[in-house]
Design a protein around this nucleic acid. Structure first.
Length: 583
RNA sequence: GGUCCCGUAGCUCAGCAGGAUAGAGCGGCAGUUUCCUAAACUGUAGGUCGCAGGUUCAAUUCCUGCCGGGAUCACCA
């Protein structure tokens, strides 16, 4: 149950009643009426802006509308207090029983608590990672991978039907270069003294691929025509690289539903040609040349005639090339064909998660999706900014394609998947993130991963301790799952329940905004409330969860069970373990 | 030069589809351990929300311009 939605429904109903009694204009438009938590919780549990929003439309003073609404709601048994405050806010305070019922609801709903029907079962495609299969994943890929996966989890939790997709860039010049690099490693594996080709990938990680080819084929590949040999090597290399990448992703608990190969676009039917033809039919293709880049003068610039996509028709800065001067397709052409393929698979929404270095690519891709779908479909692109890898505040060096980059595997093995996943979404994606090895493995409040997991483990610990005195009070017992909750009357306990009440609304908001980091921060808040209540027992033993009275203990364990459920669900969406005990 | 992102407390960052006196952690200061894990908790100090306009009953939030920082720019992938 979403408390906010529930109460909003009651407010709307009350306003409708006022309309039917003609105390408000009968044709009054109620859009914009919302229920929120008041800025200061001492004002009440929930607040509505109804009077402020309606004042103009109704032609009445806000406080007069508020008073009407207050009178209309006065008979509600769950509302303990209603105040008109400030310019016309209506602050509602609920009875303890209202909150006690929520605890019961959370326990009964279990893993379903917090799920929403926001997505209404719509099909949504989330494409993320899509790292080039030219080597192991490095830490730079990590953030986008975790962000995309967490976003997918979040959307699924919010009621969408999610397809997780990976676009394999297994075509183009880089892959050819990679194949030549493997050929070199293959020769080396055969004992030849081969020189490293120009522009080859120097990393050691290609040595096993060369060795495996040597083992499988002997020197037979050298007998073949060079192009044929490279084709075989390319296939083997792609397979090997994708195996590695899947293993890397598995370390983080990431599993895609679809791996879509760029090469498959031109494998039987040339989908790129079909795509260009489709765009041409809509009038968005022409042969022409582009103006030279502005700003820094570039000596290499040549004017040339190419097949261009009229991206400017959809707000892009310039039109974009789809075919190179030699007639081969550009990367963009393939990517447009890929997105056309996605459109053909009838997703209701498309989301791409890209690294910040692709920011400049967003407009042209969105232009293409609009052009292909006649403006009926939009592409939502989420960009994740770079990660600065630090150790105790000192930058950890990493280079691109130098062969000595920090791999994703290094990082996960150093700090564990939970810390990586949590910390990578503990920041808005569009902000630069500092990731400090030392910090994320620290066991303190300064490390949110630890702090949230600790809250879960602490609850599990309390259950274990309680069982020593009251063996009947297990998490699955009726005594704990349906206790006498009126015994929960401490302010801290009620505050904890109210924090849990925020969960469904938070999920909704985070899913709507596609911002998983909000969930991470929320869980930190829940953990703070739990640890705080626990600590109050230090000074005031009567507040400890385990009491001499079994009924009181059962009620508090019931509350803890609800807290545990929310933390478990929340961490589940983040893809982080909820441990029963800390090491 | 164009485009995009960021600019909130000394530091790192939240701020919930605009809302009432802007929050958290760290660091500072002052406290708290016969107690379910002190790996913690409580209190306190600290802010012209980069600047200037605009829209609105209401702007940290939306729009415009400027300033500062970052990313990016053609046949790369």
């Amino acid at each position: 149950m979403n408390v906010f939605a529930h109460v909003e429904g009651r407010i709307i109903a009350a306003l409708e009643q006022l309309k039917s009694k003609a105390k408000l204009p009968t044709d009054l438009d109620l859009t914009g009426v919302k229920v929120d938590a008041p800025a200061d919780r001492s004002h009440g549990d929930l607040a509505t802006n109804a009077a402020l929003v309606l004042t103009k439309r109704a032609g009445m003073k806000p406080r007069d509308i508020a008073e009407l609404l207050k009178a209309q709601l006065a008979s509600d048994p769950e509302i303990a207090k209603i105040d008109v405050a400030g310019p016309g806010f209506l602050n509602l305070t609920f009875t303890p029983g209202f909150w006690h019922d929520l605890v019961r609801t959370i326990i009964a709903d279990g893993a379903a608590y917090g799920r929403s029907d926001l997505g209404q079962g719509l099909n949504i495609n989330v494409e993320y990672v899509s790292a080039n299969p030219t080597g192991p994943m490095h830490v730079g890929h990590c953030r986008g991978a975790v962000f995309g996966d967490t976003l997918a989890n979040l959307l699924a939790f919010a009621g969408y039907k999610v397809t997780r997709e990976y676009y394999i860039n297994d075509a183009g010049g880089q892959v050819d270069k990679l194949a030549s690099s493997v050929l070199w490693r293959y020769r080396q594996a055969l004992g030849q003294d081969a020189a490293m080709p120009d522009g080859a990938y120097p990393g050691d990680y290609l040595m096993p691929v060369g060795a495996a080819l040597a083992k499988a084929h002997g020197d037979a590949l050298l007998e073949l025509d060079n192009a044929k040999a490279l084709a075989i090597i390319k296939d083997a290399t792609m397979a090997a690289m994708m195996t590695e990448i899947r293993l890397d992703l598995a370390l983080l608990g990431i599993k895609h539903d679809v791996f879509f190969s760029e090469r498959s676009l031109t494998a039987g039917h040339d989908q790129i040609a079909q795509t260009i033809a489709a765009l041409r039919a809509k009038g968005f293709i022409y042969e022409g040349s582009l103006p030279p880049p502005k700003g820094e003068p570039n000596d290499d610039w040549e004017d040339r005639t190419q097949t261009l996509f009229k991206a400017t028709a959809f707000g892009d800065d310039i039109d974009r090339a789809l075919q190179k001067a030699d007639g081969s397709y550009t990367y963009l052409a393939g990517d447009i064909a890929y997105h056309r393929n996605k459109l053909a698979r009838h997703f209701d929404q498309l989301i791409d998660v890209w690294g910040s270095d692709h920011k400049g690519y967003i407009k042209r891709m969105q232009a293409a999706v609009q052009a292909l779908s006649d403006g009926k479909q939009t592409l939502d692109v989420k960009v994740s900014e770079i990660v600065n890898l630090l150790d105790k505040g000192v930058p950890v060096k990493m280079g691109k394609r130098t062969g000595n980059f920090v791999t994703l595997r290094d990082v996960v093995e150093a700090v564990g998947p939970d810390a990586v996943r949590f910390m990578m979404v503990y920041r808005a994606p569009e902000t630069v993130l500092d990731f400090d090895y030392a910090k994320v493995t620290e066991q303190s409040k300064d490390n949110p991963v630890f702090y949230v997991q600790m809250a879960h483990a602490r609850i599990a610990s309390v259950f274990r301790n309680a069982a020593e005195t009251f063996p009947a009070l297990t998490p699955s017992s009726a005594a704990v799952r349906d206790p006498n909750l009126t015994l929960l009357n401490d302010q801290g306990e009620i505050a904890l329940i109210k924090k849990l009440a925020d969960f469904p609304r938070l999920i909704d908001a985070a899913a709507r905004a596609k911002e998983p980091h909000r969930l991470a921060f929320y869980l930190y808040d829940v953990a703070t409330a739990l640890h705080g209540q626990y600590a109050r027992g230090n000074d005031s033993p009567y507040l400890r969860f385990i009491q001499a009275d079994e009924m009181v203990t059962a009620a508090r364990l019931g509350l803890l069970l609800a807290v545990k459920q929310v933390i478990t669900s929340g961490l589940g969406v983040l893809g982080v373990q909820a441990p029963e005990a800390m090491r």
